[in-house]
Simulated scan of single mutants.
Amino acid sequence: MPELYYTLFATLLDSSSDNIIVTDSEHCITQAGNGFLRFVGEEREALLGRPCYEYVLMEDVTDIEQALTEDKAWQGQLLLKDSCRNTILHEVMLRRIDVAGEVHQLWVMRPMESAGEVIEKYLQYDTLTGLPNRSLFIDRVEQAMINSQRQNKSVAILSLGIDGFSRINEGLGHDFGDRVLKEMGQRLQLTLRNNDSIARMGGDQFDCVVVMSSSNDGVIVTEKLLRTLKQPFDLDGQDINLTASIGISVYPSDGSDVGILIQQAESAMRHCKRTGGDSYQFFSHKMHDLAKRRIDVENGLRHALEQQEFVLYYQPKVDVKSGRIVGAEA
């Protein structure tokens, strides 16, 4: 049985992505996982028996020694030297283990994100859902377009908006609405194929980029997304039923500018919402012309109000029998 435990432990040690070592009472390395070997650039035979302090930098070990003496776990941050002798900050969990009457220490060490990595993640990913944001999505669409040119394929941009999502925020609160959006993002991501990408563009809008091997791939993915969202969201024992509207633009038939393609998909999505939702709509230039005309009319009316250009005319109301004016109407 001990041999079986040792084999299982060694397998876990080698399969973990963390940097893991086991040391003896003198803090010399007795076992090391593959992750640690790759990190320090050493062969296993050359590493075993060497003091761990050659790789793990510690100025004061008092707290660590006290925790191990009291058979408690120690957790903190330490610097490790990598294969290029650079020092990388790690989150470290250290625990005492007894094996066949001998005292050992298990070191589990995970590299911490650098400040630059944290900033980059903040700039490229949505903080609520963890999905790519608009900036990263644009990069992924551009890359998909480049790849599709080489392979003579098309790319579909799907813009998905939740029908009537504001009712959830108004009726159940924004915190509850945020939980729905997080659950929704996870569900949509699991629905997509491996080579498709999804992003949260803001609010209740999620956009997807789909590389199409056949002309109906965009429709197939769109219908899967709509079916997925129709399944109730169970939060705190409460079923939330949602539907969505999806607008679709296609590269290269609708254009080659990423910003315009995304705008076209969003325009088609809004048109779909106005016509009842729970469906999808391909972008058309007629749709664009109607939207532009509506904007022009609204802007013209607003300008006319500001410039006091409206004039009120009255139409007389005439008595048919006498021919006399008996009133007026606007």
Rank of each mutant, 00 (worst) to 15 (best):
P2Y: 10
P2I: 15
L4F: 12
A10S: 13
T11L: 14
L13V: 03
L13K: 07
D14C: 08
S16I: 08
D18H: 10
N19M: 10
I21L: 14
V22Y: 11
E26L: 12
I29V: 09
Q31D: 11
Q31I: 04
G35F: 03
L37M: 09
R38F: 12
F39G: 04
E43I: 11
A46T: 13
L47Y: 07
L48E: 06
E54G: 15
L57Q: 11
L57Y: 06
V61K: 14
T62G: 06
I64A: 02
L68T: 02
T69S: 08
D71R: 14
Q75I: 12
G76E: 05
G76A: 05
Q77C: 08
Q77S: 05
L79H: 10
K81D: 00
R96P: 00
G101E: 06
E102P: 03
Q105V: 15
Q105Y: 15
L106D: 02
V108D: 05
R110Q: 09
G116C: 11
L123W: 07
L123V: 12
Y125Q: 05
P132K: 00
N133P: 02
D139R: 10
E142F: 11
E142S: 09
S148P: 04
R150W: 11
R150M: 06
Q151M: 14
Q151G: 08
N152S: 14
N152W: 08
V155K: 02
G164P: 03
G171I: 11
D178A: 06
V180P: 06
L181H: 05
M184F: 12
G185P: 02
Q186H: 12
Q186A: 11
Q186N: 15
L188V: 05
L188G: 00
L192A: 00
D196S: 04
M201N: 00
G202M: 03
D207K: 03
D207G: 01
V209I: 01
V209R: 00
V209E: 00
S213G: 14
S214D: 14
E223Y: 08
E223H: 07
L226H: 06
L229W: 07
L235K: 07
D236I: 10
G237E: 04
A244P: 01
S245K: 03
S245E: 06
D254K: 07
G255P: 06
V258Q: 02
I262C: 03
A265N: 02
A265S: 00
A268M: 09
M269S: 05
H271K: 09
C272A: 13
K273M: 14
T275G: 10
G276N: 04
G277P: 08
Y280L: 07
Y280V: 02
S284V: 07
H285E: 13
L290K: 12
R293P: 02
I295A: 14
E298M: 12
H303A: 14
A304I: 08
E306M: 09
E309C: 10
V311L: 13
L312Y: 08
Q315I: 10
Q315G: 07
Q315T: 04
K317I: 15
D319F: 08
G323C: 01
I325A: 00
A328V: 13
